[in-house]
Design a binder for these strands. Sequence first.
RNA 1: GCGGGCGUAGCUCAGUGGUAGAGCGUCACGUUGCCAACGUGAAUGUCGUGAGUUCAAGUCUCAUCGCCCGCUCCA
Length: 488
Amino acid sequence: MAETLKKLDDLVSLCKRRGFIFQSSDIYGGLASCYDYGPLGVELKRNVKNAWWKSVVQMRDDMVGLDCSILMHPLIWKASGHVDKFADLIVECKKCNTRTRVDHLEGHEGEETTHHEKPEVAAREDLSDKICPACETVGQFTEPMPFKLMFETRMGANADDSMKVYLRPETAQGIFANFSNVLNTTRIKIPFGIAQMGKSFRNEVTTKAFIFRTREFEQMEIEFFCKPGTDDQWWEHWKEQRMKWYIDLGIQPGNLRFRPHADDELAHYAKACVDIEYKFPFGQGDWQELEGIANRTDYDLRQHQRGIRSITKWFENKRDTEKTPLADEHTDWHKGPLSYFDDENRERYIPYVIEPSAGADRGTLAFLVDAYAEEEVRGEKRNLLRFHPSLAPVKVAVFPLVKKDGMPEKARAIYNDLRGRMTCFYDEKSAVGRRYRRQDEAGTPFCITVDGQTAEDNTVTVRERDSMNQDRVHCDQIKNYLQEKLDM
RNA sequence: GCGGGCGUAGCUCAGUGGUAGAGCGUCACGUUGCCAACGUGAAUGUCGUGAGUUCAAGUCUCAUCGCCCGCUCCA
């Protein structure tokens, strides 16, 4: 019977061998945590993203799309909390090599080190009487080192008047920043959501497991705006919808689960959060997060109202984002610039937000892992990827059985007819059995073979990947046959 | 960042200081008429990178980069 994937290494090897995923900068010895999608990988990943977009935007009345820039006004990251949260300083105990945040260290009297807004102040703090929480050694710490989550760069070619900007650590804030733009231009009403896919960047302390945790990655995020009080039911709605999406695209339900966040695990702004986890074959075969579905309440929009109020101060501080304090919230915050006016009920409020946030690369990896299978066929090992047809990089391969008697010409004609409609692959090299197996390893659901009979009755063999069954199909019916089977 | 393992052809790996190898894959030609067939031939390597020891380094030493496993970290 079919074997599933035991070691991630086997998949990494297949990905490289068949051109799904390569190490970034491979010829230079690689760049840690960065990966490139090859000819098959780029098709697969795009199919994953297209399936998501179709599901959350195209097929819904209450969703619209967005594609905002990666570089944004730095105050956005001040308002979101990313600038301050990740200016933390880390020290390492020289004795046991454990890393601890400076503001988590305790002294002899048990008093906590005060948290400093400015890293320069915290860096001068005396750590000689502080205790390592891991091994209880006193005062044996390295120089505090700043832990910066966000990638920084400079905008403006002239060094004198360029300013520090950040590569976004999440796509979500771009959606909040465009909330009122979308509202003002689409006639859409709450409840509604905005979807966005795109690259994000985080300087993770540790990267992990192939493309699972990388410093550059792609997100598929939704911010769904709803009236306070209806947030719980929308959270349930998205939980259900998002889980269904993975299952509909072929992931075995037994490899998926919800993991609710414990109260002490919740971010300060979140009312509730649940992860959709997949059983990856890493290390201990641990369940790992594919997607988080959080109830972010009205936190973000209210924070951005504070951010808008901070602009003048920011200019006064010569556009130094770290030095600029975030302005206090206006007493009438619920009537602020990011509030929503409900015409029917004549009331104004700041909407609550449900955020289903998925990793495109993680999802792609999960689809790869779940599709991977090894079988024994007539004493030979058969490797295949059982992709859902809509995710398969190549939908159909077209072969002449042998390279003569007009078969290549006929096969090419079929290939040319199909390629405008779906990704196709033509192959006339070596034995047909070998060509079938090559397509199995790429996950191609169907192969069409032109043979001797084709010249007589204009029919071809259509061979299905998983069962290896063959159907005789008339050439006039190929498109219909495939469209039905591929569910296109 | 720490500890352990690893890095040799596209992939999997052998090579224990003395001429760079195998299997699979790839390509060509022939044969072949539906599941990795056979025959013949061919291409492919700064042995991850850089330094050192040595008459001689894939092999020993050091540094560095990358991958895996376990810690640590993880709004």
